[in-house]
Amino acid sequence: MKPEKLSDLKKVLLVLSVPELTEICLRLAKYKKENKELLAYLLFDANQPMKYAEDVKSFLIADFNNMQKHYFYSTKSLRKIIRLINRYAKYTGSKQVETELTIWFCTNYLTYADLRTSHKPLQGLLTRQFEKITKLLPKLHEDLQFDYQKEFEILIIKAAQQAKWVNKSEYL
């Protein structure tokens, strides 16, 4: 069985009544956690995406605080945090929120991760996030681009000072 096209689904949804739409939404939310999270975002937080980003940060800071120092376990924890950040940023559909959360992740990475390790997967997490930020910045509005560019430059300089494996000339 193949899924219907979005245009066909839209046509059918337009003719349904409010109680039928409500039933369909609740049924979707019932079967998958991500659907329930997206529905909750759309109903309660969609009008304030930056406040939602702050809520995500306060939720994820506990994962940073509980992260183990051993490089293997910290890599797993950081991957989990990145997965969650990507999921929550996807709900908003906003490049500004995605940039904000990614810069926040990098800042906390520098605070909580062991920067003296030569464990390549752990180092790769930070470098991939830096690359992601460099791709996100041109997609923002000019004013936001300028603000986040300054914040990113400060972050790169701080990272290069704390970790000798970070090459700041790649990102600046």
Rank of each mutant, 00 (worst) to 15 (best):
Q149D: 09
L110A: 12
D147E: 15
L84C: 00
R128W: 10
I157F: 04
L115M: 07
K33V: 14
E23V: 11
K80R: 11
C106E: 03
P49I: 11
F130D: 01
E100V: 00
A62D: 06
L16W: 15
E37H: 13
T102D: 01
T75A: 03
L125I: 14
A29H: 04
R83C: 05
E54T: 11
L14N: 13
K139M: 13
T117I: 06
C106G: 02
Q48D: 15
D143F: 15
L144H: 07
E34A: 15
L144E: 09
D114V: 08
L39M: 12
L13K: 05
E34Y: 10
Y31C: 07
V15G: 07
A53Y: 01
E151V: 08
L9R: 14
Y71G: 00
K11E: 13
F64H: 08
I82Q: 06
V56E: 00
Y71K: 04
L126D: 01
L28F: 14
L144T: 06
K95C: 05
Y171W: 15
I103S: 05
F130M: 08
T117P: 01
A62R: 12
L6C: 05
K36I: 08
Q149H: 13
K51F: 09
T107H: 07
N47C: 12
D143H: 13
E153V: 06
Q161N: 14
F146L: 12
F59W: 03
E151S: 13
S118M: 07
L115P: 00
I85V: 15
E100A: 00
S118W: 09
E153A: 09
Y52N: 05
F146M: 10
S94T: 08
Q48P: 02
V15M: 08
M67I: 08
N167C: 09
P3K: 07
I157A: 04
R27D: 10
Y112V: 11
K5D: 09
L115G: 01
Y171T: 10
L84I: 11
H70K: 07
L115N: 02
K135F: 08
M67G: 01
L13P: 01
R116D: 00
L21Q: 10
K33S: 08
E20P: 02
K30T: 11
H119I: 04
M1R: 12
L13D: 05
E34M: 10
L125H: 03
E23C: 12
L39W: 09
K168V: 06
L26A: 07
K168R: 14
Y88L: 03
